[in-house]
Design a protein around this nucleic acid. Structure first.
Length: 216
DNA sequence: GACCAGGCACATC
DNA sequence: GATGTGCATGGT
């Protein structure tokens, strides 16, 4: 919590997800896999201008055409398939109604998303938190790196362990989970690079010797 | 030119 | 279960 407050003082409220509507958030979550968000924005703009911002429209579009439109995100062939997989599942279970698709208990939705090829844990949690508005903590490469550098986890922590640590250390609150993850990304982009460049990091005064599992 | 970016599935041991 | 590899564009 202390870490969140320090970041928030520096960056302010982030107001994520940068996207418009639940379906666009789901699409963005898939397209941003291992990819800069700027490239995702271009791809989403391409989809929009092609009139492909509904489940049914994407469902009836050939995967080759989707691949061409999302080219800027990299991995475009595989991501086109992943997007189709997600859309096919949503279409078959909820038709054109993304809200209806997302409207189910968190654990059920998570299991369903994870069963789709191309939706892993981070993508599933991003969809659950930012599109469905349910309290799950999104762990990403920045989260791992920042917690590691602060000695809050060891390098053998996997995704579920980090998620558990954060969720058990914080009040279960959608707004908090939402903005905290956004703060992790803001800190990570600006200060916590793979090659350490921690100068000026708003978290740098925080103690680095706290042991994992303790409140912070 | 090297390195990085809000991962994931699959092969192999 | 852990480790390695392919996927690919665009910015610094």
């Amino acid at each position: 919590m202390e870490m969140y407050q320090a970041a928030r003082r520096h960056f302010g409220h982030q107001g994520w997800w940068p996207g418009d509507g639940a379906l666009e958030i789901c699409i963005g979550a898939i397209l941003t896999q291992n990819t800069n968000w700027k490239n995702v924005e271009k791809a989403i703009a391409n989809l929009k201008s092609a009139g492909l911002m509904s489940i049914s429209a994407i469902h009836s579009t050939p995967v080759e055409k989707l691949a061409e439109l999302i080219r800027p995100t990299g991995y475009f062939n595989i991501k086109a398939r992943r997007l189709k997989n997600f859309i096919k599942h949503a279409y078959e279970t909820a038709g054109d109604d993304i809200e209806a698709f997302l409207d189910k208990p968190l654990s059920e939705l998570r299991a369903e998303l994870l069963s789709i090829s191309g939706i892993g844990r981070e993508t599933a949690d991003s969809i659950i938190l930012y599109a469905a508005g349910k309290p799950t903590f999104v762990v990403d490469a920045y989260t791992y790196r920042i917690l590691l550098r602060h000695g809050l986890i060891s390098d053998d922590y996997d995704y579920e362990m980090i998620k558990e640590l954060l969720e058990s250390s914080l009040p279960e609150d959608v707004e908090l989970f939402n903005d905290f993850h956004a703060q992790f990304v803001a800190v990570g982009k600006n200060y916590c690079r793979p090659k350490p460049q921690c100068k000026g990091c708003p978290l740098e005064y925080l103690p680095h010797d706290i042991h994992a599992g303790e409140e912070f």
